[in-house]
C-alpha cells in the first residue's frame, strides 16, 4: 500500500539519464529484433533460390547431354545413357488431369454443402473429417491403394474397359490423387463462400429463389476467383505428388492412350530409381526431371496464388 504513495522514480532527475540510457538500449533491442525477424523472413526466399540453383546446377550435365531430346525423347535407359522425359511428362499430366476432373465437382459439392445444405450439427464433424483426410500421409494412401485395393481397381476397370486393364495404372493414380486433393480444393472456396456474400444470399432468398438457385446465382459467382485458384493449387499438388503415385501407377515407362495401363510420372521415377552415388549420369537426369517438375509446379502455384489473392482482395473490398 505504501508503495503507491512513493513518487514515481522516473520523475526524479537522477533517473532521467537512466531513462535515456534505457531508451538507447531499447532502440538497440528494437533494431536487433527487427534484424532477427528480417533474417528469418529472408531465409524462406534464400531457400527457394537455393533450391533452384542447387538442383539446376546438379542437373546441368544431363540437360547439356540431352539437349531438347531430354524433353521430347521417349526412351529412358541407363544402359545407353539416353534420357527422354516425355513418358514421365505425359504420365504426370494425365494423372493430374484425371485427378482434377474427379476432384473438382466433389470438392465444390462439399464446399457448397457445408455452406448451405449442411445441418449445423453436422458441419463441425464433416469439416473435421475432411481435415483428417488431408492429414493422412500420402504413403499411406499409396500403401492402401497398392496392397488393399489393387484387385478392386483391377476388377472394376476390367468390368468397364476389358480384360487388359491393370489395377496399377494411370487411372488408379488419378483416382488416389483426387482423394488427396479434395481437402485442398475444398478449403479455399469454403473460406471464400463463407465470408463473402451473406447479404447476397439473403437478398436472393428474399426474391423467392430456391436453395440451388441461391447457390448457383449468388454464391458460386462470388466464390469463382477462389474456386479457380483452389483448383490450380490442387493441380499443383497433383502434379507434384510423389509417393502415393509411385506405389500405384505401375512404373512403366511408356506413353499409352489407355489410362487403365501402367505408366509413370516424373515424381514416380525419381522416387523409385534415384538411389544416389554410383548411378552415373542417370542421377543428373533424374535431378533434371526434378527441376522440370519444380518449374512446372512453381508456374502453376504462382498463377494459382495470383488468382486466389486477387479473389481474396476483391472479397475483402466489397
Amino acid at each position: 500500500m505504501t508503495t503507491v504513495r512513493t513518487p514515481s522514480p522516473s520523475v526524479l532527475p537522477a533517473h532521467r539519464t537512466d531513462g535515456r540510457n534505457r531508451a538507447r538500449s531499447g532502440r538497440r533491442l528494437d533494431r536487433a529484433f527487427s534484424g532477427l525477424t528480417l533474417t528469418a523472413g529472408l531465409t524462406i526466399l534464400a531457400t527457394l533460390v537455393g533450391v533452384v540453383l542447387a538442383t539446376a546446377t546438379f542437373a546441368w550435365p544431363a540437360f547439356r547431354a540431352g539437349g531438347i531430346g531430354f524433353f521430347t525423347g521417349t526412351t529412358w535407359s541407363s544402359q545407353t545413357n539416353t534420357f527422354g522425359a516425355l513418358p514421365m511428362i505425359y504420365g504426370t499430366v494425365v494423372t493430374a488431369v484425371i485427378a482434377i476432373i474427379l476432384a473438382v465437382p466433389a470438392s465444390l459439392g462439399v464446399a457448397l454443402f457445408l455452406t448451405e445444405v449442411c445441418p449445423r450439427r453436422l458441419r463441425g464433424p464433416i469439416v473435421a473429417l475432411i481435415d483428417l483426410l488431408a492429414a493422412i500421409p500420402s504413403v499411406v494412401f499409396g500403401l492402401v491403394g497398392v496392397l488393399a485395393f489393387h484387385n478392386v481397381f483391377q476388377t472394376v476397370f476390367r468390368a468397364i474397359t476389358g480384360p487388359k486393364a491393370n489395377g496399377s495404372s494411370l487411372l488408379t493414380a488419378g483416382i488416389i490423387l483426387a482423394f488427396m486433393i479434395i481437402p485442398i480444393i475444398t478449403s479455399i472456396p469454403r473460406e471464400g463462400i463463407a465470408t463473402v456474400p451473406g447479404h447476397h444470399r439473403e437478398a436472393s432468398y428474399a426474391l423467392g429463389a430456391t436453395r440451388w438457385e441461391v447457390l448457383r446465382t449468388a454464391i458460386l459467382p462470388a466464390g469463382s476467383g477462389g474456386i479457380t485458384g483452389a483448383v490450380m493449387l490442387g493441380l499443383g499438388r497433383a502434379l507434384g505428388e510423389t509417393i502415393a503415385v509411385a506405389l500405384v501407377v505401375g512404373s512403366a515407362i511408356q506413353i499409352t492412350p489407355d489410362i487403365t495401363q501402367p505408366g509413370t510420372t516424373m515424381a514416380e521415377i525419381i522416387a523409385n530409381r534415384f538411389n544416389g552415388e554410383g548411378m552415373g549420369i542417370e542421377r543428373n537426369a533424374l535431378m533434371g526431371l526434378g527441376v522440370v517438375l519444380f518449374m512446372i509446379t512453381i508456374a502453376v502455384n504462382v498463377a494459382a496464388r495470383v488468382v486466389v489473392n486477387r479473389a481474396q482482395r476483391r472479397n475483402a473490398g466489397t
Partner: peptide, 16 residues
C-alpha cells in the same frame, strides 16, 4: 513466395 513454396513438391526438397 511462402505460399508458392507450400506448393513445391516435397520430393524437390529432398533432392535439394
Amino acid at each position: 513466395f511462402a505460399d508458392v513454396m507450400i506448393g513445391v513438391p516435397s520430393i524437390v526438397m529432398g533432392m535439394f
